[in-house]
Nucleic acid binder design. Structure first.
Lengths: 140, 140
DNA sequence: CGGGATCCATACTGATACTG
DNA sequence: CAGTATCAGTATGGATCCCG
């Protein structure tokens, strides 16, 4: 369960090395978990798309955010950016093998969420409904 | 590759239903990918811990953030909060079965990252080193 | 000891306007 | 078409003080 090599020791001691790994894991998770990345990757999953196509498809994203997201993904080598020197500029984005690889890895989480979203929803619901029990205290 | 039921259709059409799922997936991913969650879960992976213990172990987290993170995790039913009515207050946090389940699911990503961090680092490095070629600009 | 309530600095985001 | 630059509102994280 989330076992990094040396986690046990590092945790109870003072972590020097594995922290780097955790940082990177979180970094990747943060990117994937960011507001537009998952939508963007999903959109590209079925094939290359142009900027405008993505902009329409992701629905809700601003040019700015889409641009940023794509640059970040490109930087990590998860997506390729191909510009064709044509009269009306044309740029296509596509998932790289690495991108697809990550996409598949993410699938695990996706499935987990799909099969446990009920539990989470139920827990949240109960937690929110609970007046003042476990939660220390509160005043209105 | 990140295949949600009906993703293909929804993508090329106009997504109504699966969007909800994606939203929730992103929601969970965002939580896991948030700055302190992964560290916190990892810390709790080897057993229950008190607030202060966590505070020391996670290293760098403020009381506020730790408190928030724990409340969010508790709300989702991923962590339990047990307060013992003793003279010096004592509260223990522990992963729930659901929490461990998620933790295991996250392992997939962890392993992916571990085996591809080299690629990512290399890509970023190259991307950043590239002056101003095709990529409009560099830097985030 | 375990947080809640506040205040403040900064990061992030969206809307808008402007280019090659 | 495919972005970038700018500005303003908002969300986020940390530091601090305080109370049960």
């Amino acid at each position: 369960m989330t076992s990094f090599p040396g986690t046990e020791l590092a945790k109870r001691g003072g972590a020097p090395d594995c922290v780097q790994t955790i940082e990177l894991v979180r970094d990747v998770l943060a990117r994937v978990g960011d507001k537009w990345t998952l939508l963007t990757i999903t959109a590209l999953a079925s094939g290359p798309l142009r900027f405008t196509a993505l902009h329409e498809q992701v629905a809700g994203v601003s040019q700015r955010m889409l641009s940023q997201t794509l640059r970040a993904l490109t930087r990590d080598g998860l997506v390729t950016r191909t510009a064709y020197p044509e009269v009306p500029p044309r740029v296509e984005y596509a998932l790289t093998p690495l991108g697809r690889s990550l996409s598949e890895a993410v699938d695990g989480l996706v499935h987990w969420v799909r099969s446990h979203q009920g539990d989470i929803a139920r827990n949240r619901d109960e937690f929110d409904r609970t007046p003042v029990a476990k939660t220390p205290r509160q005043r209105l």
